[in-house]
């Protein structure tokens, strides 16, 4: 089992006719993902290397049938694209778009909460979700992931998500699903959402969590882990040496006072029984130990 996606997931790509959408949409298809349609208003009837393009999400869904959407459109158009998917009944929307205004993100979150509670948004500003060998929606290079489990990955950062996949794969540890939740102020899916799904997933036996400074998502994750997780969690938090009060790229990564610092997050996680690595490589090595102990316990 995997979470959120599997080999049967059918994906439409909003923005497939753009350069980014084309590059990643086709790459996702090459990986084996069922990319069944593209959506670009005004370009219905065209195709991108055999993938039919429709004017609207509703048309694409009625003709091709899909349960997931990959949103690769500019920030001004992203909110509407996400809500179009939700209104058409798409269950999973993965949005990689960067630089969406925070007010638009808050409004999208509010409308999903009130009008479309059955739609899960992953992102925005995230690398997407990959279940190695089954489905890849987003911008992750599929060849750095290794299938077969037993580890689930959840990460707030883009490139650190790849780093985490890479650290595990090169040590021969497979992944069940890797979810990049994104670093924006209003993530559609939170650490806790993904941890809940991994806790419920039979195939996932341990979780690697990659956080960073700013906000309190990691602290909330620590509370959830302490109260509900029976599976071991290994974490890495980026930004231990970040100067206070300075923004480091992500809108979410603002350190002010003690709350939101790497130190406070690490303390909360350690308090919840999480093993925390000092860098991504050390976190990978700690996961090797965890997986070995899981195997020993079974044999």
């Amino acid at each position: 089992m995997s979470i959120f996606v599997d080999e049967s997931t059918r994906v439409i790509v909003l923005g497939l006719t753009g350069s980014q959408g084309r590059f990643h949409g086709l790459r996702n298809r090459d990986y084996g993902t069922k990319v069944v349609a593209g959506v670009t208003p005004g370009k219905g009837g065209q195709d991108v290397e055999g993938i039919p393009v429709y004017d609207t999400v509703a048309q694409a869904l009625s003709r091709e049938g899909a349960d997931a959407a990959f949103v690769v459109v500019p920030p001004r158009a992203a909110s509407e694209a996400i809500l179009d998917c939700a209104a058409a009944g798409v269950g999973l929307v993965v949005c990689i778009t960067e630089h969406i205004p925070a007010k638009d993100e808050a409004l999208v979150a509010a409308r999903l909460r009130r009008e479309f509670p059955r739609t899960r948004l992953i992102g925005p500003n995230c690398p997407g979700v990959i279940s190695p060998g089954r489905c890849n929606i987003g911008i992750t290079a599929g060849d750095i992931a290794l299938g077969g489990g037993p580890v689930g990955i959840v990460s707030r950062s883009g490139t650190l998500t790849y780093q985490a996949l890479h650290e595990l794969s090169r040590k021969g540890i497979g992944q069940t699903t890797c979810v990049g939740i994104g670093g924006d102020p209003v993530p559609g899916t939170t650490f806790v959402d993904v941890l809940e799904a991994f806790q419920a997933d039979e195939e996932t036996q341990a979780v690697m969590m990659i956080g960073e400074i700013g906000g309190d998502g990691e602290e909330r994750a620590a509370d959830y882990i302490a109260a509900h997780m029976t599976k071991p969690v290994v974490a890495y938090i980026a930004g231990v040496t970040a100067p206070e009060g300075r923004r480091m790229g992500h809108a979410g990564a603002i350190v002010s006072g003690s709350k939101g610092t790497a130190k406070a997050k690490i303390e909360a996680l350690v308090g919840a029984g999480v093993v925390v690595g000092q860098n991504p490589t050390e976190a990978g090595e700690l996961m090797v130990d965890v997986v070995r102990r899981l195997k020993d316990a079974r044999s």
């Binding site: 998500t161 960073e212 980026a238 480091m248």
Partner: peptide, 28 residues
């Protein structure tokens, strides 16, 4: 590239005994 990886690079430089002259994220 990426704020997370850039922050992590700062951390690792620090851990191996050096000091970063800057944070620079060239973006996605």
């Amino acid at each position: 590239n990426g704020a997370g990886l850039a922050m992590s690079t700062l951390d690792v430089v620090n851990q191996v005994g050096g000091g970063a002259a800057n944070f620079l994220d060239i973006g996605g």
